[in-house]
């Protein structure tokens, strides 16, 4: 009997150090940029600035974590895979209800429960549309986006609501051990979701469902179950985001959802460049949100024309993503 020997390649390739460097290149690009910004403005690395970045990016990061779960469970093909673009709309609906109820003197717990119920209902609606009706996630969540935005406008009458509530201001301005409270919420989401998706049996199977539907099926798993769960889990993230968002803008300012959508989607998919396997992950998505925000803040500190920030940001992000893609191609 001859035992075949296959060279143990890939990881034991010629220059492991170089490989590691290549694999981490996207992060390196960001690191270099931040060094550049720190050199240009001392304030950039001050804790006051960093905590402000964390505070600002918390809602995006939390929503991105939710989206990452759906993408993981449904696959990263935009056209047929898992995606939930209704998350920002759901969160906005939550913000609207929470603000409205608080302004009308409802106790916080009750108001939050109401808002949470509405947000989770959107998650359930998505799950039903995708799993029971059989729509592709993009179409299903696009439809619920339109419906939820419309409903929010209607319920809230399309007006700005300013909330003056002790708890909300605490969330906005408070810190725990010097860490802003919104960032603490984000951290909690990071820990819970990462563990859920990347360390448990359930998460492993959820990843498999998105990675190859038929592989999951013949392994005795039901991909639809995981996809449905992922929409509900994502809506739980949106519940947390509701609170943080309400704090960030002290109530509801209409029309925030489009901006949120773009930032969330960008963060999630840019985050894939940070993972070794170049797939969407929870930590990657959240890191993406923070880094993209930090980039914007840095450029402002460097006094880059506000209109040009978008351009520079876009170009840099393309560089990061391209480097990841090219590195993946090199491995073939």
């Amino acid at each position: 009997m001859t035992a075949t020997t296959v060279e143990t390649r890939r990881f034991a390739a010629a220059a492991p150090a170089l490989r590691l460097l290549l694999a981490r290149f996207p992060l390196l690009v960001f690191a270099l940029l931040f060094v550049y910004m720190a050199l240009g403005s001392e304030f950039f690395l001050e804790w006051r600035n960093i905590s402000s970045i964390l505070r600002q990016s918390a809602p995006d990061a939390i929503l991105a974590a939710g989206l990452a779960v759906v993408v993981t469970a449904g696959g990263d093909d935009i056209v047929s895979g898992g995606i939930d673009i209704s998350l920002p709309a759901a969160a906005t609906l939550g913000v609207g209800i929470l603000s409205d109820q608080l302004v009308n003197g409802r106790p916080f717990v009750l108001a939050m429960l109401l808002a949470a119920a509405a947000v989770v209902a959107v998650g359930l609606l998505n799950a039903v549309l995708v799993v029971k009706v059989g729509l592709t996630p993009l179409l299903a969540t696009l439809a619920s986006w339109v419906a939820v935005i419309g409903t929010t406008k209607w319920v809230i009458n399309n007006r700005r609501i300013t909330v003056d509530h002790q708890f909300i201001s605490n969330v906005r301005d408070g810190t725990v051990l010097n860490v802003p409270i919104p960032a603490v919420f984000a951290l909690a989401v990071l820990i819970v979701f990462s563990f859920w998706i990347h360390r448990t049996r359930f998460g492993h199977r959820l990843q498999a469902s998105g990675g190859n539907r038929s592989a999951a099926e013949i392994s005795g798993l039901n991909p639809d179950y995981f996809l449905a769960r992922s929409f509900v889990m994502a809506s739980l993230a949106a519940v947390v985001a509701t609170l943080v968002l309400t704090a960030r803008s002290s109530g509801l300012s209409p029309g925030i959802e489009e901006r949120l959508l773009l930032d969330m989607v960008l963060a999630t998919f840019v985050g894939a460049a940070f993972s070794f396997r170049r797939v969407v992950t929870v930590p990657g998505a959240m890191l993406g949100a923070v880094l993209v925000k930090a980039l914007g803040s840095g450029f402002q500190l460097l006094n880059v024309d506000i209109f040009k920030v978008g351009m520079v940001k876009g170009v840099l992000i393309l560089i990061v993503v391209a480097s990841a893609a090219l590195e993946a191609g090199q491995r073939r």
Binding site: T200, R201, Q207
Partner: peptide
């Protein structure tokens, strides 16, 4: 052959029959 492309060899072998320890899988 139906396998998940971005899973490692070990993860693929144990798909659906994962082993868990104190800190998850």
């Amino acid at each position: 052959i139906s396998l998940v492309p971005h899973f490692s060899v070990a993860e693929s072998v144990f798909l659906g029959q994962e082993q868990t320890g104190k800190f998850g899988t």
